[in-house]
Amino acid sequence: MKTMKLEIVTPSGLIYEGDVKMVTLPGKEGEFGVLPEHASLVSLLDAGVITVETADGKEIMIAINHGYVKVDEGKVSCIVDGAVLISDEEGKLSERMAEAKELLQKAQTSDMAIAAAVSKVESIKKSY
Rank of each mutant, 00 (worst) to 15 (best):
Lys2Leu: 14
Lys2Gly: 09
Lys2Val: 13
Lys2Ile: 08
Lys5Glu: 11
Glu7Phe: 14
Val9Arg: 01
Val9Ile: 09
Thr10Val: 09
Pro11Glu: 01
Pro11Lys: 01
Ser12Tyr: 13
Gly13Ser: 07
Gly13His: 13
Tyr16Pro: 02
Glu17Leu: 09
Asp19Thr: 05
Val20His: 03
Val20Ile: 10
Lys21His: 02
Met22Gln: 11
Thr24Met: 04
Thr24Lys: 02
Leu25Ser: 14
Lys28Trp: 06
Lys28Arg: 01
Glu29Gly: 08
Gly30Ala: 00
Glu31Phe: 12
Glu31Asp: 14
Phe32Thr: 08
Phe32Pro: 11
Val34Lys: 09
Leu35Glu: 07
His38Tyr: 06
Ala39Ser: 11
Ser40Asp: 02
Ser40Val: 10
Asp46Cys: 10
Gly48Leu: 12
Gly48Met: 06
Thr51Asp: 09
Val52Met: 04
Val52Ile: 14
Glu53Val: 10
Thr54Gly: 04
Ala55Gly: 14
Asp56Gly: 03
Gly57Ser: 03
Ile62Gly: 03
Ile62Arg: 06
Ala63Val: 08
Asn65Ser: 14
Gly67Arg: 09
Glu73Arg: 12
Gly82Phe: 00
Ser87His: 15
Ser87Ala: 10
Glu89Gly: 09
Glu90His: 00
Gly91Asp: 07
Lys92Pro: 01
Leu93Tyr: 03
Met97Phe: 04
Ala98Ser: 14
Ala98Gln: 11
Glu99Val: 02
Lys101Leu: 05
Glu102Trp: 00
Leu103His: 03
Leu104Lys: 00
Leu104Met: 02
Gln105Gly: 04
Gln105His: 01
Ala107Tyr: 00
Gln108Thr: 09
Gln108Met: 04
Ser110Asn: 06
Met112His: 02
Ile114Val: 12
Ala115Pro: 01
Ala116Met: 11
Ser119Cys: 08
Ser119Glu: 05
Lys125Gln: 02
Ser127Gly: 07
